[in-house]
């Protein structure tokens, strides 16, 4: 499903070259739950951005669903992203829309028939345990609820791949546990999950395959 061959990414800040990833290679198969672990600045976010083609590798090849993402045209990038759900540390909910509207927004943008939207939104909200908060606005949610709403938005299209970039970074342990539980449910539902976290104990607690990143290199692949 995902294959990286000797991938490097260097950001240019004026004349300064900042290496974010160096010679990274690994493979993730369909149905896996993989944790990208490492401290801040290790290259986790950069790696995820390469997977949904928000960035291009400076060197090497990134294959997702069998396609070299660097060679995709604009319309193909859009098609790729329709198969990937993404969540971030910041839930990125639209503040003037309810939870229901935030989740439905994605379906409406993609032209889902109106008659299908309600059922699919409530399916997604049920998976993340937010059915009762459908009419709440983001400002009325706890951080954990907001993150679960973001997860509902990411999975409402039932993408085969979910990328989660520090989704629990700003949550306390109890809220983080709720989010991990939801991620586990999504994974057991058949979705491949790639979770980036700087919390080493999270990776250990999840007992899933862990790719440890340090200074842009994969230093360990275990589990």
């Amino acid at each position: 499903m995902i294959e990286l061959h000797r991938v490097s990414k260097i950001y240019s800040v004026g004349p300064v070259k900042v290496p974010a990833l160096s010679d990274v290679s690994f493979r993730i198969d369909k149905g896996e739950f993989v944790v990208l672990a490492g401290p801040s600045g290790a290259g986790k976010t950069t790696l995820l951005r390469l997977l949904y083609r928000a960035d291009l590798p400076s060197d090497g090849e990134v294959e997702v669903f069998g396609s070299d993402v660097a060679s995709l045209r604009r319309a193909q990038v859009a098609a790729l992203r329709r198969s990937i759900g993404v969540v971030f540390q910041d839930a990125k909910l639209l503040p003037v829309r309810t939870v229901y509207e935030n989740v439905a927004f994605v379906l409406r943008v993609l032209g889902t028939p109106r008659r299908d939207i309600t059922a699919r939104v409530f399916d997604a909200l049920r998976v993340v345990g937010l059915s009762s908060r459908a009419q709440a606005y983001p400002a009325q949610l706890s951080q954990g609820e907001a993150q679960r709403a973001a997860l509902a938005r990411a999975i409402v299209r039932k993408p085969p791949l979910l990328l989660a970039d520090e989704p629990t970074g700003s949550l306390d342990d109890a809220m983080a546990a709720e989010v991990f539980e939801v991620l586990r449910d999504i994974w057991t539902g058949g979705t491949t999950v790639v979770l980036a976290t700087h919390q080493r104990r999270v990776a250990v607690a999840l007992r899933r395959r862990t790719l440890a990143l340090e200074a842009g290199r994969v230093v360990k692949d275990e589990g």
Partner: peptide
């Protein structure tokens, strides 16, 4: 900009 960011993230066609 936030709507646009989400639209691009979920693969909305440029026209949309």
């Amino acid at each position: 900009r936030r709507e646009t960011e989400i639209m691009r993230l979920v693969g909305a066609p440029e026209l949309t």
